[in-house]
Design a protein around this nucleic acid. Structure first.
Lengths: 238, 238
DNA sequence: CGCTCGTTTGACACGGATCAAGTCATGTGG
DNA sequence: CCACATGACTTGATCCGTGTCAAACGAGCG
């Protein structure tokens, strides 16, 4: 198999080493086989568009490796980021269920490996294998939870600093505890953070500068260290 | 059976007249029987609290009749409304799946009839009957869609009038077409609309006044008539 | 009748969007 | 190897919208 974008393709789901708890593809072996039978594995470079808001749904994508973002765009071209998709998560499930056009756009943020499952095959899997259906439940459930948190942040936060502080704390769970505080990787531009939090790019810069000046955090490239977690929490408040 | 709050209790799901397309309880008869076996039917007055953010999940609620709201509250007491729950929809599914405390609060807006299913029984139903699981998928999927729309409104709308106009258009789908325009019932206070849209109560009043003065809408009590749909759409833009 | 709740309207201050200008790092082609 | 383009970040100045506080009105209800 060729490996474009310097990604090694993993074709066999049965002995895939990436699979972890919570992955959609954590399925009993017989079910996994029928999943494997209908999937198409492929890889994408960074900033590739998987599907666009308004297209008729072709099927669902399972992200194996890499990160992607889901966005909605207004007529004027402004957009919100609804979710950063992590490995093991599905994209395009809603459109598959409803049969209506994709209501959002999916783009990769990094080089990614993906499994594509055509809509009909996916719906058959769901109807036939309860384990698949239950895993979809869990995916949807956690996506909904995340959406609720985002609504909370958008609706309740009084100031932009509050939003940014809350955002960093949420990402902190993906970071590593060190003697200096929680160290994490933030592979997002200010523009993207702004689109998640519903503020302007400049405001994100200003808020981050403010947090640095209060020495609550330090940043170096994409690496962020939370120096004073309780201080951040006090600021996040809402 | 007693019928408090002047609601007639419907105990039998098999011949329930309220059940419509998209209802969670639209299930094949044998499955419906096992659902009936584990449910508890009860009725609530308006403004009753079903469960509160932070409680350990006891189970899920199926709304049979009436309307309810799901909210999240900040430490300072401000709250956002995540969703208005309509008959046929489930509440508390997320907490049931995750086992973690309810992340939101559910309150009735009107006198309601409800079916309560204890968590264990619900999870067994989901695992045992694929039809149940698929219906849960559809519920979660449409709840997620609605959440996305709300995020879009919160994140992309430039002004409060934009949000209000978009909100009215969304509710218009529940209204009736008349010669005067779409007539609908809006059983929400300005305060509640404000909590959905993430603005202050006064701003909602001002925005509605503005829409009336532009004769895009007329209001009389809880009844709203959209006089100029395309005008509203132009205002909603985002 | 008087209470409460929801609505309406006004005045004012503040936060952030926007516009603008400039820095820095990276990558490309001559 | 340098000049240049590009994209992301930074910082400042200005203006508009909306949150907040305040006061008053209207309707429903015991």
């Amino acid at each position: 198999m060729t490996a474009p974008y310097s990604l090694e393709l993993v074709e066999k789901c049965t002995n895939c080493a990436w699979k972890a708890a919570g992955f959609f593809c954590n399925l009993p072996v017989p079910v996994l086989k029928s999943f494997e039978a209908v999937k198409y594995t492929s890889s994408y470079p960074a900033n590739a568009v998987l599907f666009v808001q308004g297209q008729v749904p072709r099927g669902v994508y399972l992200l194996c490796k890499g990160r992607a973002k889901l966005t909605m765009t207004s007529a004027e071209g402004k957009s919100v980021i609804l979710r950063i998709v992590e490995p093991g998560e599905l994209m395009g499930v809603n459109a598959a269920f409803s049969g209506k056009p994709y209501e959002l756009t999916a783009e990769t943020l990094e080089p990614c490996q993906m499994n594509f499952i055509p809509r009909d095959a996916f719906m058959q899997l769901v109807r036939k294998h309860n384990e698949v259906s239950v895993n979809v439940n869990e995916q949807l459930s956690s996506a909904y939870s995340a959406a609720c948190l985002q609504i909370r942040s958008l609706g309740l936060s009084r100031t932009a600093s509050e939003k940014v502080a809350g955002f960093l704390l949420e990402w902190a769970s993906k970071g590593k505890e060190t003697s200096q505080g929680v160290r994490m990787n933030l592979p997002l531009t200010h523009e993207e953070i702004a689109q998640i939090l519903g503020v302007s790019r400049e405001t994100v810069t200003r808020a981050l500068t403010e947090l640095k000046s209060k020495s609550l955090i330090t940043m170096k490239g994409p690496t962020v260290v939370i120096r004073d977690k309780s201080g951040l929490e006090a600021l996040a408040a809402a």
